[in-house]
Amino acid sequence: MHIRLKIWRQENSQDTGKMQDYALADVNPDMSFLEMLDMLNEQLLGQGQRAIEFDHDCREGICGQCGVMINGRAHGPLKNTTTCQLHMRSFRDGDTIYIEPFRATAFPVKCDLKIDRTAFDRVIQAGGYISVNTGQAPEANSIPVGHPIAEAAFDAAACIGCGACVAVCKNSSAALFTSAKITHLVLLPQGAVEAQERVRHMVDQMDAEGFGHCSNTEACEAECPQQISVLHIARMNWEYNKAQLLKK
């Protein structure tokens, strides 16, 4: 395959940045999208140019690092797929592919396609945990959890923090991400104890980071690689309203 690329280049967080054109020949359709970028980078390094920086780690769809905007869609044209799980066979010979970093005021661009996603970390730090003294691993069956609840909590816990939900949202809302963690913990007996403070602190932090409001467009669920359900957002709203009403 022969492809043309338009890629966002930005030296550092202060730089204004711009889209730059590249061409790549002999792309194998079975390459993953990131392998295609690796190939481009080798070519650039060979020519003595600076490589294009992009985040990645596991390359098997579980770490959530590889988020970029591809042809105007979060993680590319497929629904519910990370960039590393996207292959060049999803494109056609001669295509022009736009690659841009995920955009949100709360996710400043650090360099090229790399963004600063620590806003998510701070939302988790605000309450996405349970306060216990961790000693030895406790006996797994000492706190009974029904199977459907365990499954539901696990579905919510599957969020990999990739930020696609924010990137695709017209309001740059982090509602799906935040609500997944809140729901994960509120479903379980260990998490229910601190449910009220948790939801208030995490929502406050989400607001403080400068994410927008949720308009319930449901674009986030369509792009989320873990198919986190938008009903978690409704659950977060419910828990938040309850916590606000019962607050002492």
Binding site: M19, G72, E100, R103, S172, H213, S215
Partner: peptide, 24 residues
């Protein structure tokens, strides 16, 4: 507030494919 939360636009934007126009 939403405008402030996402003030930089994408050069190529096809996010509309995954939600209904009237919700946006």
């Amino acid at each position: 507030t939403n405008k402030r939360a996402g003030d930089v636009k994408y050069h190529y934007d096809r996010r509309g494919e995954v939600s209904k126009w009237y919700t946006r």
